[in-house]
Amino acid sequence: MPDDVDAVCARYLETADRHEPGLVEGLYLQGSVALGDYHPGVSDIDFVAVTTLPPDPAAVRAIHATLPRRPFFDGLYVTWDDLRRDPAQAPPGVAVHERRVDPESRFERSLVTWHVLAQSGVAVRGPAVSALGVHTDWPALAEATHRNLDDYWEPWLARAGRGPVGLTPWATAWGVLGVARLRHTLAAGRVTSKSEAAGYALETADPRWHRVIREASRIRVGGAPLYRNPWRRRADLVGYVRAALDLRPSR
């Protein structure tokens, strides 16, 4: 585990045990750490904290207020039973996103989180992930992934056709890597990382889109820009998203 991740987790557990002894029975990492795609100074630390009973939001705020501002320690609080059932059927609960604590949130309560945890989650405290009985349902996750492409990215393209959507560097990384990751997840039959998805995009996309794919990766992890003109970058972003949606795997 990267040193900064290990340090944040240790500080979190020490603080939680001091403020609310016995509260955090299990701590697991998902997201980029679990997928082998964590980049210090860029990535967040995505956690799943397991408690017997739903925690007091005030106690959670007190614990997280003591942690470093970056990297963000983002995640959710669940019970052991929550992990064994479809997250869509579990009630909302306490979650932390960019240091903000929401007592009734659905943040990260999704099949994507449950699948990443089951695939390669990192146990910091508690039983091994393989012993948790985490609920997974690949057909449902695949269908949800198709819906994301249909219900979010197709309308995004329509908005891009009506106005200057996608001009920022962030939008380039979000669009290219977001669509590529959804397509790669469907092709691979598992949740994949953004870096894996960029490699998949380079292997499967027309060479005309390679520049914007590399630029999206560069925006995420650093390096010299590949575009001077944001409008040219936007045009390639829109073109790549259109081409990727046209080539999506069939249901």
Rank of each mutant, 00 (worst) to 15 (best):
D74A: 08
L226D: 03
D6V: 11
V48Y: 03
W80F: 12
D46M: 06
D81E: 15
V42S: 07
G222M: 00
P92T: 05
G121C: 02
S105A: 13
A243W: 15
P2L: 07
P91F: 02
P207N: 12
S130Q: 12
A171D: 14
Y38E: 04
V238M: 08
T168P: 00
W153I: 04
T145L: 11
A131V: 06
S120K: 01
E14G: 10
R11L: 14
L13S: 10
P71T: 03
D4I: 14
P2S: 02
V24H: 08
P127A: 13
A128H: 08
P225A: 11
V179A: 11
V8E: 09
R18V: 03
D37L: 01
L247I: 00
H19D: 09
R218C: 06
K194S: 01
A243G: 12
D102M: 06
S32M: 05
R85E: 12
A62D: 14
H39R: 12
A180K: 07
A201W: 02
Y12P: 03
V165W: 12
S120I: 00
V176F: 00
K194D: 05
T204E: 14
P57S: 04
R233N: 03
P169E: 13
T66V: 13
E20S: 15
V134K: 09
E14V: 04
A10K: 13
L149W: 05
F47Y: 13
A88V: 01
I45V: 15
R251L: 06
R147T: 07
Q119W: 02
A59V: 15
T192A: 13
A216N: 03
P87C: 01
V96M: 04
R228N: 06
V5I: 10
A187T: 13
T52A: 15
D81H: 13
D4G: 04
S43D: 09
V179S: 09
G121L: 01
A140Y: 00
S110M: 01
L202A: 07
N229E: 15
P169A: 10
G26C: 10
H97C: 09
R211E: 00
A49T: 13
G166V: 12
R208D: 05
A95N: 03
P40R: 08
A10D: 14
A62W: 05
P207G: 10
R183M: 12
S217P: 00
W114G: 03
L13C: 10
V124D: 02
L226C: 08
Y152F: 14
